[in-house]
Write a protein that binds this DNA or RNA. Structure first.
Lengths: 130, 130
DNA sequence: AACAATAATGATAATCATTATTAATTTTGG
DNA sequence: CCAAAATTAATAATGATTATCATTATTGTT
């Protein structure tokens, strides 16, 4: 079981930093932003708290975009669109995908509990600015 | 542009190793298997050739499962099911997902070029062997 | 308010997957 | 066979993330 969490200003700051940034930042970005409010905060503390917040379900981790983990304060079910030019991440509504036919999976004996979708393409900025 | 590829026994071995293993192995696994046929092959050579084969479209790279890249000799369009217990990866047919409604994305100015879906759940083995 | 138990921090070392470097070898076309 | 260029093996380097550890902060209880 996870150990009992005690309050900490740093964890609070990490969470607020994530919530105040619409982007889907990396640990490094959160570290830089958090430092503006607490110059003494350590990178390890940011990593530790991000992981704890993921563990507790307060935020989500996004893997596989580049070689860094990104973090998302939006815990509602949704998907992501990643621009293949600039790498920025956009949210996509959950209902873009209709009900799936899980029969083929069930026939194989697979029990589907969830699914993630990542869309790839070009964002408005990269389309317009050539 | 990519440079001209010359034949190499090692690249051949890496590709064959991938094709002969139904699993979706990591570079480490390919390295271990390839070593059985060529004990002198280097890990860097395996990485280099895996990346070249991805580049040339002969294989695909799967990111975001764990902290390691997995490789897939199946270049047909398909999705993946990852068992949350054992981590094994299973193929899912492409037609499990019906046509998507891309209107919401287009209204935001996003141009969708492709999408990946990863299913998560329990595989038959992990379900049966409790 | 002081105490004891334990979680959290900051600083930094360690880890681990992947990539870069480089001298020697292999491939390929002429 | 030759020369140009790609490939290799071995290993160092990189970069994100995690572990370690002495010190500090939090929390519940006297």
């Amino acid at each position: 079981m996870g150990r009992i969490l005690k309050y900490s200003k740093q964890r609070d700051l990490v969470l607020k930093t994530l919530q105040e940034n619409v982007v889907h930042p990396t640990a490094d970005f959160v570290y830089a932003k958090a430092k503006e409010h607490n110059p003494n905060i350590s990178l390890a503390t940011v990593y530790r708290n991000l992981n704890q917040l993921v563990e507790s379900g307060d935020i989500k981790k996004i893997n596989g975009l580049d070689n860094m983990a990104h973090f998302d304060h939006n815990t509602h079910k949704h998907f992501h669109f990643i621009c293949t030019k600039c790498g920025k991440i956009f949210d996509m509504p959950y209902d873009i995908v209709p009900e799936l036919n899980t029969k083929p999976a069930e026939q194989k004996g697979l029990i589907i509990e969830s699914y993630d979708i990542s869309f790839h393409g070009i964002c408005p900025d990269c389309r317009d600015n050539h």
